[in-house]
Amino acid sequence: MTDDLVFYTHPMSRGRIVRWMLEEVGQPYRTEIMGFGTTTRQPGYLAINPMGKVPAIRHGDAVVTECAAILAYLADAFPGAGLAPPAGDRARGPYYRWLFFGAGPVEAAVVNSVLKVQVPDDPQMRGMVGYGSLEAVLDTLEGAVSQTEYLAGDRFSAADLYIGAHLGWGMQFGTIPKRPAFEAYAGRLYARPAAVRAREIDDALIAEQRAATPQA
């Protein structure tokens, strides 16, 4: 078994979150740039992710998809990077809480809002919606990032990276409002050297793709 770390992504996808995590981890990795609807639909990649979506990673024999799962896996696979509270530490509770809050309520609420999905104004029907409402999700996040510098203990973790990436991306494209607490929190995280490196790498890849595209 090889311990090679392979990253499957596209520079204009959620893979930007994983790129940031990989830069924080600081271990060598190889990037495979995938094309939407082209190389992501080929048999070789469908064996990695049958949904034909990016990002994904392969670490030796382990294949992981879904951003939150990839972040959690990398944090545990490379504990020396200090991106997750140690096993047994009570900070592990809020660490998992906010990772999965991002993957569940935040993702669902924001996407449904963009798609203009209306939840029926009926208590029984509304109770079936795990996130309740977009406003409830945003208020919960604002309370969390306003109370402490980091979400899980006294240091930066993969949970901060994931929530910070959601907030930064959402505010950039107008799917999450620019509340002062969100701007302050995401601004601190986006200034981290690994975050800057990750953006530079993906932005350079986007520029290369655009330069290679024939102009009409």
Rank of each mutant, 00 (worst) to 15 (best):
E142H: 04
A144R: 10
G168E: 01
R90D: 09
A84K: 13
G168V: 03
R92Q: 04
Q147H: 06
A158T: 11
Q172D: 15
E142C: 03
E135W: 14
W98M: 04
G132Y: 00
H166L: 07
V106G: 04
Y150S: 03
N112Y: 07
D76P: 02
Q172V: 07
T140R: 13
G127F: 02
G164Q: 13
L151P: 01
P94S: 08
G168H: 04
R97F: 11
G164H: 10
Q172Y: 14
A91T: 11
G127C: 05
V137H: 00
A152W: 11
G170M: 05
A144G: 08
D139R: 07
Y162S: 04
P120A: 04
E142I: 02
V145E: 06
A144N: 03
M125H: 14
F173R: 15
Y73H: 09
L71M: 15
F173I: 14
L99V: 11
Q172E: 15
G102E: 01
F100P: 00
Q172G: 13
E149W: 09
L141A: 05
V129W: 03
A136N: 13
L115G: 05
D160L: 14
Y96R: 12
G153T: 05
G80M: 13
P85M: 06
H166S: 05
D122L: 02
V119D: 00
S146G: 04
G102N: 00
A108F: 12
A77R: 03
G82R: 07
Y150Q: 10
G82D: 09
D160M: 07
A87S: 14
Q118H: 13
M171L: 03
V129P: 08
F156E: 13
L138I: 02
T148K: 14
V145F: 06
I163Q: 08
Q147Y: 01
L167D: 10
G132V: 01
P86Y: 06
G170I: 11
G80K: 07
A109G: 06
G82Q: 14
P79K: 14
T175W: 13
P94R: 04
G88H: 10
P120Y: 01
G132F: 00
G132E: 00
D89F: 06
W98G: 08
D139M: 13
S146Y: 08
R155H: 00
G82I: 08
P123G: 07
D76L: 10
D122E: 07
Y162N: 04
R155V: 04
Q118K: 15
D76M: 09
A159Y: 11
L99I: 08
Y95M: 15
